[in-house]
Design a protein around this nucleic acid. Structure first.
Lengths: 192, 192
DNA sequence: GTTTAGCAATTGAACGTTCATTCGGTTGCA
DNA sequence: TGCAACCGAATGAACGTTCAATTGCTAAAC
């Protein structure tokens, strides 16, 4: 697959992302995705077997892009520094790429997610890197013995909630709030 | 409006809830909602002007029901006790009513929410009770001075994340995890 | 260097289906 | 008697998908 093709596939992804954000899964016809991406309707079916496959692959694309970005971290940092750094990268990335954030959120809470959960393994979209990072902290005794789901609920839950608050317009000057959040979580989970 | 009517409207609500959980906003035709609720398609339009209005009102219905449940709390409890009680009621309610939980999640991350945010005021579905409860803690000096969005991000964010983890099957024995979560949050936000 | 064969990429009109909504008519209650 | 509740077939628009035709590229053949 050459560069041109990659570009066209990405154009379809970006177009889908934009339109689904504005109009939802329903309310976003393939014809509209096509014209917004400057391709013919039929072209989409050259790259994706169906609308469902397009949406499912777009989810993977978003997850991979996000994970690549947030785990691009200096190995020399201490665990605590990484803990803060990754969290801030995640929040920054979502705030700078709200379309990706909201698409992922929409996908997660839709029946689509159940579908891919059965067929795809987490590494398919890089979901296991977070698990590895947090497990590392537990095994090293830096993070006290709370379960992985508890950790994730706090770490990711707070990040996404914060992004939602900012997007909804409930909170503008986010700097202080952000720092409070990750600090509270760190204090709650680290082994003092 | 008499009891019979209320029942029919609720039957439509419950039917919509079930089907949207299984098939999403798209993938849930009015005809299916109707037959699942044992009414004729036309009857839905006697109660709701359109599918959008049905979904929007269902959201309000879910929010009101949830809020009524979680804020049904003994006035004699201390603030700390209420803080724990309300959070646990919320988690329990969502776990016992997953359809409501997922519908609300789906609605929040869809373009629908932006629509009602512009037209409806928070008290319309009881969203201001949480604000009042948390403000009460801040004003009484029980909760340290973190912003309201920060508080909400932790308090609600952790609850919903926890429910998601349980639903996704990432976590079974939830008892310990739950206790850890609300304890960490309380320790993080209360004025020691 | 030119021709040619073949396949991938692309097009968009056409198809068949599905769906939200309408409406003329019926039922049942006050 | 009147009006609200209710019905479900009919309507027409919208949508996902298909497909026959066209273009563009690559590389083998000469």
């Amino acid at each position: 697959m050459n560069v041109q093709l990659l570009n066209k596939k990405e154009a379809i992804f970006e177009s889908t992302l934009t339109l689904i954000n504005e109009n939802g899964f329903h309310g976003t016809p393939m014809s509209q995705i096509a014209s917004h991406a400057n391709v013919a309707t039929g072209t989409i079916y050259h790259y994706f077997a169906s609308k469902d496959e397009l949406i499912t692959e777009l989810f993977a694309y978003c997850r991979v892009k996000t994970n690549e970005h947030i785990f691009n971290v200096e190995e020399s940092l201490s665990y605590k520094e990484k803990f803060f750094y990754i969290w801030n990268r995640l929040v920054d990335y979502y705030l700078a790429n709200k379309k990706i954030f909201w698409f992922i959120e929409q996908f997660y809470s839709s029946p689509y997610y159940e579908l891919i959960q059965k067929t795809k393994n987490p590494s398919y979209y890089g979901a296991d890197r977070m698990r590895m990072f947090l497990d590392e902290g537990i095994e090293a005794g830096i993070i006290r013995n709370v379960s992985f789901p508890t950790l994730i609920s706090l770490y990711i839950g707070a990040a996404t909630s914060h992004v939602k608050m900012v997007t909804y317009g409930f909170c503008q000057a986010q700097k202080q709030g952000r720092e409070d959040l990750i600090e509270i979580i760190w204090n709650g989970v680290n082994n003092k």
